[in-house]
Simulated scan of single mutants.
Amino acid sequence: MSTPRREPRRIPVPGDVSRVPEIRDEWLRHALSTEPAERGTGEAVISELYALAGQSPPEFVRASSPAAAVALIPPAQTLSLGGDLPVEGRIATLVTSLRERLDQYIGAWRNRYRQPDPPRDGASVREFLNNGVAPALRRTIRDSVAGALRGELATSSGLHWYGQQDAYWVAHYDLHQRVDGVRFAADDVAQLELWATLARSCGWWWPRENVCVVADRPLVVRTEQLPSDYGEARLHNGNGPALAFSDGWTVHAWHGTRVPPWVIDAPTADRITGERNVEVRRCAIEHVGWAAFIEDAGLRLLARADDPGNPGSELLLYDAWPEPWRTPARLLLAVNGSVERDGTRRRYGLRVPAGFDHPLDAAGWTYGLSGAQYAQLSRRT
């Protein structure tokens, strides 16, 4: 009796990584969209998530911005006598469980077939997606854009979701399906599509018992591209708000750092020297330029010297502006020894003790060295 011929196991071939930029940019467009929200679509999908959480569809309340939404959110619900989570807690459990299962599929898929991925600069497709594209999407969408909005809210707004800015994690799983060849369970694909539809159709939303507050998308989103293989960007606008909503609520950002509006709209030496936040002060000075700031602030140049730790650059020592809450100091102006993420070398100022008269002594002090020791450096970073 002959043994039936066994067909060779079909091994899925991962997609072409050349498709990654197209798919990544598709999700970035949704995450940064300023188009009017698709209200009917968003409300229908949120109602489906309520149903999955065992809750009837809510009444929807629209808000023109996340800031306006905060004032409309009902008080947070506590656990019921039976220990049941409020609806926002049940939705959080749904999405957490979904993402855990999808992550398991991705790991199991590779472990099962154990087929080497086509190399891309020595990295596998999975490494390229997990360690390159996914972190870049997270930094661009969640950390830079959503993070700036979250930081600008005056009060905590409780458990909520980002709508279009949840695209950073939706895109991660979509890329694994369309490029890496991973196949998820049908029910999980259907639930992932609900979150994908929300990312394509609405802004931030706050689910509560019987009521869901949904914010409109912004009218303005301004970002700058970073030199990266993964398409990373960050929030930035040197001529106005980086984010703006129809009700006039705005967020200003300078090369990824959230700043008060005056840093962009009206930076002056008086405002800069009176600012206690070092990062805000740095951004304002970068905006006006060190030369203009030094002239406007009336800082006096005391000495200058070539920087032995950064060939081709100078160290400049100035009298620093007085700060009532700090001891007298001087300002050492230097050029960063390493390149920033945007490809430039930042010029920066350091407050050093007022007793220094020579730039090398001041520069050495910042490294715990004497001026003579600092002069022997071949390169600093």
Rank of each mutant, 00 (worst) to 15 (best):
A233W: 08
P227V: 01
V179F: 06
R222D: 11
E193A: 13
T223A: 00
H176L: 14
T268M: 11
H236R: 06
I264G: 00
R208K: 14
V214D: 10
D270E: 14
G256P: 08
D265K: 01
R258A: 12
T223M: 01
A199P: 07
W205K: 00
D180P: 00
A190P: 08
W195Q: 10
P260G: 04
L192F: 10
Q177L: 09
R208Y: 13
H236K: 07
T257E: 15
A266N: 12
R217I: 13
L175S: 07
R200W: 11
Q191S: 10
A269Y: 01
R217P: 12
E232Y: 08
Q177A: 09
R183M: 07
V213S: 06
G231P: 08
S246A: 15
R183Y: 00
P261Y: 01
R183L: 10
V213R: 00
D187K: 13
V259D: 09
P241Q: 13
D216Q: 14
G240A: 04
A269E: 11
A244W: 00
T223E: 01
T268V: 12
R222W: 03
R178D: 08
V213C: 01
A196K: 15
A196T: 15
V251Y: 07
L192H: 03
V220D: 05
R183N: 07
N237P: 04
R222E: 15
E224L: 03
T223H: 01
G181V: 09
G256R: 07
I264S: 00
W195H: 13
A233K: 12
F245G: 07
D188P: 08
D229H: 03
L219W: 03
R258Y: 01
R234W: 15
R200H: 14
G256C: 10
G231C: 11
S201C: 13
D270T: 13
G248L: 05
P261K: 00
H252F: 12
W249E: 08
I264Y: 02
V263G: 02
D216P: 14
G240Y: 05
A253S: 14
A186Q: 12
I264P: 02
E209L: 02
Q191E: 15
G248A: 07
L226N: 10
I264Q: 04
A196H: 14
E232D: 10
Q177P: 04
A269S: 11
D247Y: 02
P241S: 14
Q177R: 13
V221H: 04
A269I: 06
D229M: 12
D180H: 11
G240E: 02
T250H: 03
R200K: 15
E193Q: 12
F184H: 07
E193L: 10
